[in-house]
């Protein structure tokens, strides 16, 4: 699929989803409804849709090519199949996803994988804010699944996350893992402040630099390595627990060699009485 023109208005494309496309002919797919601004349109009006022969043994793939920055809610509630996106795509990609796979060769906007329940999202570019976060006001964050981002990500990654794995190769913004309940967030790059604010449980691993750690986290120990989703990541790491303000037992691992300014925490480790 390829957009016919550059969209100026947001396009809400819940219908671009393997579950909806399944068992439909090309003509039926072209007639599926979506919204452009406040006008209801069909996929055929906005996109060039082509069918290519594929190997029946393999999973069917929906391939989207072009500038899709205004296209939102693609792959909403999908439960199987594969979406391949070549280009930048808009907000709420893979919202409430229950299975299947989304691969983006480009950047994505905010709320990618929001309220995701299972499946895999792989982004070769960068992602916006609120990766895997729940809808505003809700506490039902990501329940399971994997999100891999090869680039950077914005603020509040993994907000209210309940389980699953988010792995980011680049840098992230502030409030990583805010209100996190469980699951793992791995950041290979640097990270903005206020990491893990309000977290109750789960694991956040920062391999890069962090400006500071919230005062509601207490140092626990220094670990030489940490496991994330079966992979052993070499440290050493400072291990903090928190957020104590919320009686949380979350674990926050922060690289020791890249954060010499946190070395003052080590003196608390020597005093038995300071140990959490």
């Amino acid at each position: 699929m390829r957009p016919k023109y550059v969209f100026r208005l947001p396009v809400y494309a819940d219908s671009i989803c393997p579950d909806v496309f399944a068992d439909k002919s090309l003509k039926e797919i072209s007639e599926l409804k979506l919204w452009e601004g406040n006008k209801q349109r069909t996929i055929g009006e906005l996109f060039d849709v082509q069918e290519t022969p594929f190997d029946p043994d393999e999973d069917a793939v929906i391939r989207l090519v072009g500038d899709l920055q205004k296209v939102r809610t693609v792959g909403c509630n999908m439960s199987f199949g594969k979406l391949l996106i070549e280009g930048d795509i808009g907000m709420r990609l893979g919202e409430g996803m229950k299975g299947g796979e989304i691969i983006v060769k480009g950047n994505v906007d905010s709320w990618v994988g929001c309220m995701m329940e299972d499946g895999k999202i792989e982004i070769h570019g960068s992602a916006g804010d609120y990766v895997a976060a729940p809808y505003r006001g809700s506490t039902e964050g990501m329940k399971n699944g994997v999100i891999v981002i090869h680039g950077d990500a914005g603020n509040e990654v993994g907000c209210y996350m309940r389980n699953g794995m988010i792995s980011i190769e680049g840098n992230v913004g502030e409030f990583v893992g805010i209100h996190m309940r469980d699951g793992t967030i791995l950041v290979r790059g640097n990270c903005g402040g206020r990491t893990g604010a309000g977290m109750l449980d789960g694991k956040i691993i920062i391999c890069g630099r962090v400006s500071s750690v919230l005062p509601t986290f207490t140092i626990d120990s220094v670990k030489s390595s940490v496991k994330a989703d079966g992979e052993k990541i070499k440290g050493p790491f400072y291990r903090f627990t928190g957020d104590i303000a919320d009686q949380g037992k979350g674990k926050l691992y922060i690289s020791k060699p890249l954060n010499p300014h946190l070395s003052f925490y080590e003196k608390y480790l020597q005093h038995e009485s300071f140990r959490g």
């Binding site: 729940p134 809808y135 505003r136 006001g137 809700s138 039902e140």
Partner: peptide
């Protein structure tokens, strides 16, 4: 105001 998720 408190519950946008309720409206959604």
């Amino acid at each position: 105001l408190l519950r946008p998720e309720d409206h959604y």
